[in-house]
Amino acid sequence: MRFLALLRKELRESLPWMLLAAIIFLAIGGFVLRAQAYLGQPSWYYSGLSPGTVVDTYRLTHFSPLRMTGSWLLVTSIGLGLALGVRHFWMPLFTRTWPFLIHRSANRPTILWAKLAAAIISFIIPVGVVWVALYRYSCRPEIFETLPTKRVFIEGWLFILLGLVAYLGTALAGLSSARWYTTKILGLAFATIVICMTIFQWRLGWAFAVLVVGVVVLLSQIIDAFLNREF
């Protein structure tokens, strides 16, 4: 009951950001996806294919119609992660509500799990559901000439998880009691490194491995910082 009360409270605080992320991603991501449909058959890809000629191999590589949507998905996820991290871990500092929250008759891990659970739900519902919907829409051959691969679907979820990494980095920075010009931003710096290392992998396995290692590193420090921090 305590956990649910805390979870409801965190979700309610996250609600405006969830809605904003969902609306931005649906509107802009959907718009740029739909714009791909209006290009019709990408004849320029195959315009060099005439009999008796060497083929420009570049023309044989295709982006999925979700190409521009992917950029927006990544930006939205990371933006949502930063916003939620600030909301959950920086705002209580500014509004000085940490003592009130910590003194609830719930142990500290419960309070932390509620925040993390709220963050995970905040990513899955607004961003995840919209992503699934856009992906399903892009798989319609009557609308799009080039269909996305299943790998693109997984990559989209990877971007959503990168938003979670941004959230964890912001959380760790918020929980650090160091000064901003010393090591306070290390959490954010490390999250940035993990994000960069993940999106420039060419093997999905490696990308997920980097992501998992990053999440474990950040999460362990967040748990330690939250349990031992002074409020």
Partner: peptide
């Protein structure tokens, strides 16, 4: 344009913000 090497195969599989590409 004429040759497509393993390096380029890796490049098109690179995730990047625009997702990976496919060879079709």
């Amino acid at each position: 344009t004429e040759s497509f090497t393993d390096t380029r195969m890796k490049q098109i599989q690179m995730i990047t913000p625009e997702f990976s590409r496919s060879l079709e």
